[in-house]
Each structure stands twice: as C-alpha cells, then as structure tokens.
Amino acid sequence: MSLIARLRAYAADALGVGAPDAAPDDAHLAAIALLVHVARVDGILAPSESVRLARLVQGRYASSPEAAEALIARAAAFDAETRDVASLVEMIPHATDAGERGRLLAMAWAVAGADGTVDEFEEALVWRLGKLLGFDEAAIARARGAGLSERYPEPDAGAGPA
C-alpha cells in the first residue's frame, strides 16, 4: 500500500471524511495541500483565509461546502505528513498544462492575500511555489495580480521553466 493510500485511509478513518473511493486523485490532493500550506505558513490561519480556501476548493475540487471541508481536512493531514512543498509539487504531474498550474498558483496567491495582506513568509512561499511549478518571474507576477484580484484567467505559458 502506497504512502498516499495509507494517508487516505487514515484520513477517512480518523477524520470521518468519506471512503477512499470518493478520494480525489493524488494531484488534486497535493494541490489542495499546497493551498492549506500557504494558508498556514505565517502561523496564523485567519478566518478570512479559511473562508477563501473553502470557497476555492469548493469551486475547483468539490461539489458542496461539506465536501470542500472534508477535502481540506484530508489535505491538512496530508500536508502535515509531507516534508515540504517541493514534495507536494512533485505529485502534480509534469504533463499538467501551464493553464492548470497557473490557476493553482493564482489560487495560492488568493489564499495568501485573503486576510488583506501578504506577509513575507507567504510571499516567499508562493514565489517559490511558482518557481517549482516551472514559471518565470513575469508569469509569477501575473499570477499574483490575478490571485490577489480574484481573477483566475488562463495564464499564458510564456511562463516556461525559468
């Protein structure tokens, strides 16, 4: 049984968040865990960050507020078991198109700025996440603008690996 399967089973049993059959794929769980990591990086999970995180997860990965909360709980447990963001990014397939990676990056900026400010820890983490996702400086800056204004356009892939 893989680490992912064990974590899913643990989350399903311990947190009562549903059967592993209803589990998102590894890439989606990793993406949500990245968003959770961003929300908690400054040591304070502000209510506004929780609300924004739940709304983004529901809009992209879940069909209801309850399903979003369950996914966030699973992703939080998964994030706690993962050593760093690079490990989470490695779980997102290299074949994932730039548009999807760009939306994830914009969502990370949206979570970071949900409390009205992006502190230095959040800034450094999301900027590093952009680099790990293969974006150049200009593309990361565009994703920042999109995320902080809550626009999630299709970023152009001119954002190839830096």
Rank of each mutant, 00 (worst) to 15 (best):
G43S: 07
V38I: 06
L71M: 11
R40I: 04
V36M: 07
Y61R: 10
I44K: 13
V36L: 08
L34K: 00
G59D: 06
L71S: 01
V41H: 06
A46P: 00
I72P: 00
A62Y: 04
A62G: 10
A30R: 04
H37N: 11
L53W: 04
S50E: 15
A62F: 08
L45R: 10
Y61I: 04
V38K: 00
A68V: 08
L56E: 06
V41P: 01
L71Y: 02
E69H: 13
E69V: 08
R40P: 02
H37C: 07
V38C: 04
L35C: 06
E49A: 11
R52S: 05
Q58V: 04
E69F: 07
A54F: 07
A33D: 00
R40K: 13
Q58T: 12
E66Y: 09
R60A: 09
E49W: 04
S48G: 08
V57T: 11
S48L: 13
A39G: 14
S64K: 12
I32K: 01
L53S: 05
V57Q: 04
A62K: 02
I44D: 13
I44W: 08
L35H: 03
I72S: 03
R40Q: 13
S48V: 09
P47N: 15
S50N: 14
S50T: 10
S63E: 15
L71K: 00
L56I: 14
E69S: 15
A30D: 07
E69I: 04
A39Q: 03
A39V: 06
A31H: 01
E66I: 13
A46K: 08
P65E: 12
A30Q: 08
Y61N: 05
A39D: 09
A68Q: 03
R52V: 09
E66D: 15
V57L: 08
R55I: 05
L53Y: 05
V36R: 01
V41I: 14
A70N: 13
